[in-house]
């Protein structure tokens, strides 16, 4: 009986406790990292050049993949929407379906997933390698602050770049959906836009861009944080990169799920 209780009840509880402890530890470290980034930025310790470098790598170089993803989001939504709308619902409603799916959800989320794979993983691997090869220690010993030199430019660039990429993805996604509606369903541009406007709230765009800002902040924050925590050689870098990607995906999904109840009431 005792054994049963221990195995059935206490062990899972202990596991929950350990997980909670780990989550609290990560949260604490990330809060202090955010604070460090804010402080370094406000004190003017972050070099403009490194922000621009990061802006280039994150924004400009991610653009092709973001565009492809946006086009596919728009086209697929159109085709599946068209398949589901029966003759009782006018086809121009499709315009609204595509516009809101893309702006509220697909634009920000798919763009962020692209950034997790293309940018987040790279940041963790890069900073993790610097950590295990003592380059972070070298920065400290030379009186440089790794948060100002490495973390801040990435977090700032991510927070600025992502909403821009999301805006581009929104426009391209809707446009691709519109073209697909005409080619595959014979729905004219005018009718599509009529439908899109009918159920459009001006708030929707802000919502989309807000998502972009939050995701664009959290992706580099997590990847930098996991990079700094890396221990144990090349294998450790691999381990923390995988962990960082999982961590980013889960955080993104959780945040995405909290967005409607926070902002759409």
């Amino acid at each position: 009986m005792n054994k049963l209780i221990r195995r059935g009840l206490l062990r899972p509880l202990a596991r929950v406790g350990r997980t909670a402890e780990a989550v609290a530890e990560h949260a604490g470290q990330m809060a202090s990292l955010s604070w460090g980034v804010a402080a370094a930025t406000l004190r003017g310790r972050v070099s403009m050049r490194s922000i621009i470098d990061q802006f280039w790598e994150m924004g400009v170089q991610s653009l092709p993949l973001v565009l492809v993803t946006a086009v596919i989001s728009g086209v697929v939504t159109t085709q599946q929407g068209g398949y589901q709308l029966t003759s009782t619902i006018p086809l121009y409603v499709l315009g609204s379906v595509v516009a809101s799916s893309v702006v509220l959800e697909l634009g920000p989320v798919m763009t962020s997933f692209v950034l997790i794979g293309r940018v987040g993983a790279r940041i963790t691997a890069e900073i993790g390698t610097m950590q295990v090869s003592e380059q972070i220690d070298a920065l400290h010993s030379l009186g440089r602050d790794p948060i100002a030199v490495l973390a801040a430019p990435r977090v700032i660039a991510g927070t600025i770049t992502t909403p821009l990429l999301v805006s581009i993805a929104n426009v391209v996604g809707i446009f691709a959906g519109m073209v697909a509606a005409r080619l595959s369903l014979g729905l004219g541009y005018q009718s599509f836009l009529y439908g899109a406007r009918m159920y459009w709230h001006s708030w929707d765009l802000l919502y989309s861009i807000n998502k972009g800002i939050v995701f664009g902040f959290i992706i580099p924050l997590i990847s930098v944080h996991m990079g700094f925590r890396t221990r144990g050689g090349a294998e450790g870098v691999g381990r923390s990169t995988t962990a960082a990607v999982v961590f980013m995906i889960i955080s993104l999904l959780v945040l995405d799920a909290t967005f409607p109840s926070l902002f759409l009431n």
Partner: peptide, 19 residues
């Protein structure tokens, strides 16, 4: 700590160059 780091130079065992 910042002042101490300013006066202490550290030569790393494996160089630790910024690659």
């Amino acid at each position: 700590l910042r002042r101490i780091r300013g006066k202490v130079g550290y030569v790393f065992q494996y160089a630790a160059l910024f690659d």
